[in-house]
Amino acid sequence: MNWDETKPMVSIKDVYKSFGTLEVLKGVSLDVMKGEVICIIGPSGSGKSTLIRCINGLNDIQSGSILVEGQEVNDPELNKLELRKKVGMVFQQYNLFPHKTALENVMMAPIRVLKHDKEIAQKAAIKLLRKVGLEDKVNAYPGEMSGGQQQRVAIARSLAMNPDVILFDEVTAALDPETVNEVLLTIKKLAEDGMTCILVTHEMGFAREVADHIYFTDGGLIVEHGNPKKFFENAKDPRTKEFLSQIL
């Protein structure tokens, strides 16, 4: 990837989004530099998931601009397939393909979408499954794995496309408490390897430890943002304070 590292890799400016008459995003702006880990936190219904779903074009926006490596997402002429090769996504409900094994889940897109050679894709997929600690689950079907294991396969599946940035949409929210950590550790490893990550999360401890920058959303707006230390210890906005007092 040749991206001018002085410019933000993802640049969101003044984004408005509504579902019918319901305004979900009311002028949101944020920038993400290469290699940064961004956590978006906030109460339910504050538009955080909608925001990251706009970045890979799963949701369209009414106005504003989203640039991914300089490419405008809010453009009817946009080649979504090209955008999605650069932007990976991991979901709350894992969304693995239940009729395919872990290995097939991971190697299918490189073969079918990127037209990689099957043997090379398979080797890469096994390597990725090893990276997320699931080399022994290569031939398991999603239904045979725990939630944490499925989510790690989903992360490997996203990595297999070799994206420049990965979106994580509340990826631990559906997990049993004891499996949350294995997924968070996997993401932490990615972040340490320099992967650009945008996370919507409720894991405050994780956000504090891993994030470079934290955004707090409420009512479709970014109310406050800053580095973790400043954000958790020195929140200014009363809404942030209230939210943090409830959570921490």
Partner: peptide
């Protein structure tokens, strides 16, 4: 709908999504 979204996020075309992921299920 998560199946469609996951496939779209992996840059599968609509035709591929339908034939490789949705219809087999």
């Amino acid at each position: 709908s998560g199946q469609w979204e996951a496939a779209e996020s992996l840059a599968y075309s609509r035709r591929q999504t339908l034939w490789l992921i949705i219809l087999p299920q």
